[in-house]
């Protein structure tokens, strides 16, 4: 069943090659050996060209520690800043990844989310989450999945995300 909270855009310009040309890109990022990039919010707040969600470092380390995928951030250490919004929405961030690692990534990110919800004693139907996943299939062929809705709805839509990526 189609999930109304999931917005899909086909053939977007987000790609590993295009990230290399971004103003914020830094050679500190080992982009050629990376499966997943955590991308910033651009011009989200005055005074900062880029910002990351408040759980960004925690999510990065969770993904790194899984030893299943290689994760990096395209900016320098100095430019990396997190913005705390201090509301109850789980902002998982914006990701760019290759289609080969999509199943592993979805499995990891949903485990992270469910573990957080369980530890806080919340109901997955009542917790709001947001995430943007850009899946690069071939050069210049990227599908963007934007989700904002209940955590349960996100986990329910994982199969749909995988199927659309496979079928496209």
């Amino acid at each position: 069943m189609f999930n109304d909270d999931l917005i899909i855009e086909y053939d977007t310009s987000v790609s590993f090659e295009n990230v290399k040309t971004a103003n914020y890109f830094s050679s500190e990022c080992d982009i050629n050996n990376t499966d997943v990039l955590l991308l910033p919010y651009e011009r989200f707040r005055e005074g900062y060209e880029i910002l990351f969600s408040e759980q960004a470092k925690e999510i990065l380390r969770f993904l790194e520690n899984s030893n299943q995928i290689k994760v990096d951030v395209p900016c320098s250490d100095e430019d990396f800043k997190e913005i705390e919004l201090h509301d109850a929405v789980f902002d998982l961030g914006i990701f760019l990844l290759t289609s080969a690692v999509l199943p592993v990534f979805l499995n990891l990110i949903s485990s992270y989310l469910y573990d957080k919800i369980k530890k806080r004693g919340k109901d997955a139907k009542a917790v709001e989450t947001k995430i943007e996943i850009n899946v690069e299939k071939d050069k210049n062929k990227t599908i963007k999945f934007k989700y904002k809705g209940s955590a349960k709805g996100f986990v329910d839509s994982l199969k749909e995300i995988e199927k659309i990526t496979k079928d496209d």
Binding site: E54, K57, V73, D77, K81, E84, L85
Partner: peptide, 24 residues
Amino acid sequence: LSRESVIIKERCSICGKENGLRNH
């Protein structure tokens, strides 16, 4: 009220090391 703030510098309470993106 919900506070919006950008974290510029933070340090680990256990070892005192600065918590950077790659250096932590």
